[in-house]
Amino acid sequence: MNSLRLGSYSFSSRLILGTGKFSSTRVMLEAVRASGTQLVTVALRRFNRNQAEDDLFGPLSEIRGITLMPNTSGAATAREAIKAAHISRELSGSPFIKVEIHPNPHHLMPDPIETYEACKVLAAEGFIVMPYIPADPVLAKRLEDVGCSSVMPLGSAIGSGQGLANAEMVRLIVRESTVPVIVDAGLRSPSEACAAMEMGCEAVLVNSAIAVARYPVAMAGAFAKAVEAGFEARNAGIMPRSGSAVATSPLTSFLGAAS
C-alpha cells in the first residue's frame, strides 16, 4: 500500500505542510510545490484589507491536487474548536480538520481533555478529524475509538526544533494504532522526518523547519526526499541490531597460513 489513506481520501505524498511563518506568500507557494505535498494546513484569521497577502485560499487553490486542512489554532476549549471547524469547513469545502487546542501560549501543549471532547463531536459530524496531541498512547487510542482518522502526536513543542524528543512514546502509539500516526510539530531536520517514517509513522507534518530555513524551497525538497526514504526503508525491512560485530567478509585463515 503506497498511498496515505485518511478517511476516504488517499495521497501519494506523505509530507503534510504547514503554511505559517514563511517570509512571503510567494516563497510559501514555491515551497508547497517543491515539497510535492497534497495536504496543507491553514488557519482562520480576521479579514484585513490592508493585509491582502494574508488570504491564502485563492493562491493555494491554484495549485493542482492540493487539499486544505484548516486548523483550530486559537481555540482554548472544545466549544471554540468546534466553532472554528464549522467556519473552516464553510470556507474550505474540505472535510479535513486539524484539531489543535492549546490554552497556554508559553508551551503550546495540547489540552487532551478538550481535544478529546472536540474530536468526539466533529468525528460524529463527519469531519476527517486529525488531532494534534501529546505523545500519549492511551489518549491516542481513545481518539481512534471516537472516530478520528489519524492521530498526530507532537515530536516536541511547536516550533522548538527539538526533534523527536518523544520518540519512545511515538513508537508505542505506532504499535497500538490502527489509524495513521503522523508526527506533528518539533521536527527540525529531514533526518528526523526520515526517522519518524522509519519508526512506522505514516506521514509527518512540517512547518517551521521549512519556513524558517535559509532556503525554504530547497528545504521543502529535502524533507520530501527524507520522508520518502524513511518510508521505503521501513518497507524494505530494517536490519535488527546486534550487540556485537557480525563480519561481512569471510574470515578465513589462509593469509596467516601462507606466511
Binding site: K21, V42, A43, L44, R46, F47, L56, P70, S92
Partner: peptide, 10 residues
C-alpha cells in the same frame, strides 16, 4: 460580525 479568511498556519 466576523469576516474571516485563511491565513498561514501550521
Amino acid at each position: 460580525v466576523e469576516i474571516l479568511v485563511f491565513a498561514g498556519g501550521g
